[in-house]
Write a protein that binds this DNA or RNA. Structure first.
Lengths: 257, 257
DNA sequence: TAGAACAGCGAATAGTGTTCGGAGTAATCC
DNA sequence: GGATTACTCCGAACACTATTCGCTGTTCTA
């Protein structure tokens, strides 16, 4: 068990933001050309995270992978935090833009939620990056606009659209986190955990939990996710229908766009 | 920006679990009595987390607060991870047990969700601890059983009850995380962030986002949380009513207990 | 050709979790 | 009572981490 905090309150996010939005390093006016590009660095960092986990992503390892000294990395990127922000904005671009998906608003949200879920499950490090006060990069902003656009097809107010996006996003993050954490467990660790709990817990005192455990329901994260997603969308849909009123058109039937 | 991984795959969680479930240290058969209790250590750790954040919770600082050497701490607790697990199970006990709340199942869930939300907002470190594959301690198990008991008042199946608990829990965690992250931002940092984004982003390209931003909707986490909670509960309620069938009794009207 | 501006980086600083080995203490055994 | 044993406590060390300083060498400009 181990956790971490958001940014060490870096004094100024400006340099990181400039990197994020320009996407490349300015060519030096004097002196030798730069030996690396931002893309190379971001890719190397992602590869390290993929291989060893985000925790083991140290500046030294990234530098080593790139064949440069650690201190050189700091001439490209202001620090580890900025590098993580670059990774997030780069790989978030893989997610499809919700408003380009065909179908009703509901179908669009389903695709978006499942795509994010799948992405977070296959790249746990991305989930961690996405859930700690991200710097607003161009790809994240593009995605957010697209998500709002999906909900703009409904009669929801601006405030409600934002709330709906945050609701779905929060839900996907929260349940992906639960799934990823339990999937990331070491098998031996998990076995020892289960053995201990079985040996020490009086099952009669926790009958419902015991029933769920023996039924194998406690670890079925895929099913939990789908169940919850459906409930949330049902709830939003009911709210939309109420908002539109019985006379209003069903916005869900609008063509995609 | 900064994140962290779950456990460094400790070889064996057994010692930590024993501590969690016994709640106290065995009296030594030989040698001097122990100078500290588990409660003292957990309290000191929580105080450190409260003061400096979870990131700054180092074994050295906890030891210093207790007036002992660092190495001594390791004779009480197998490591930092175990200490964090103890903190979680200790402070989770503050949450009310859902099934003891008066009212319908829906009222019970609302209390539980809001209590957790409030608890996470006031203790950001608890949220982090709760969202990284927690060791199952006695208080966490008690809470989970209680949550299942709330849903056992409805005609949901066992699998659905678990899914509903996970849905609500996932949602609360996910949206609390978003709220906590943005609240924890340094004011100067945030100001620099906003200034940069305003100077660089072409608002016309992101009209919906711009509209939400100027309307002040992007940061209203409390409203987002309430909106989402209502939708989720609406969705669950509709599902329950469908399950019960038009002839079935409305489980929501059952007396508490 | 001198100087400015830069790239790259070795070494140092200040931290981290954890372990090792020894000193002191108290109960037990002979 | 004296020796043994099991224990607590902890200073120092190990192997890491992010970040910064100051130096070397390169390239462009005046």
């Amino acid at each position: 068990m181990d956790t971490e905090e958001p940014a060490k309150s870096e004094p100024d996010p400006t340099r990181a933001l400039e990197l994020l939005w320009s996407g490349r390093l300015p060519k030096p006016a004097r002196g030798p050309d730069r030996g690396l590009t931002l893309v190379q660095i971001t890719t190397a960092a992602a590869a390290t995270a993929e291989a060893d986990g985000l925790d083991a992503l140290s500046m030294r390892k990234v530098a080593a992978r790139l064949g440069v000294g650690v201190a050189s990395l700091y001439t490209y990127v202001p620090g580890r935090s900025a590098l993580l922000a670059l990774m997030l904005d780069t790989f978030i671009a893989d997610a499809p833009l919700p408003h380009t998906v065909p179908g009703t608003w509901r179908a669009q949200i389903e695709v978006w939620a499942r795509a994010d879920w799948a992405s977070f499950r296959s790249r746990p490090w991305l989930l961690r990056l996405a859930t700690v006060r991200p710097l607003l990069g161009p790809n994240l902003l593009r995605w957010y606009e697209s998500a709002l656009r999906v909900l703009a097809r409904t009669p929801l107010t601006t405030a409600e659209r934002v709330a709906a996006v945050e609701t779905i996003d929060g839900y996907v993050h929260g349940s992906a986190r639960a799934a990823v954490d339990s999937a990331g467990a070491d098998a031996a660790w998990e076995a020892a955990h289960v053995r201990f709990v079985n040996s020490v817990v009086d099952f009669d005192q926790y009958p419902l939990w015991a029933e769920a455990a023996v039924g194998g329901h406690l670890g079925d994260h895929e099913a939990h996710f789908e169940f919850g997603l459906r409930r949330i969308l049902d709830g939003i849909e009911a709210h939309i229908e109420r908002s539109a009123g019985p006379a209003g058109p069903d916005a869900a039937a609008d063509p995609a766009g």
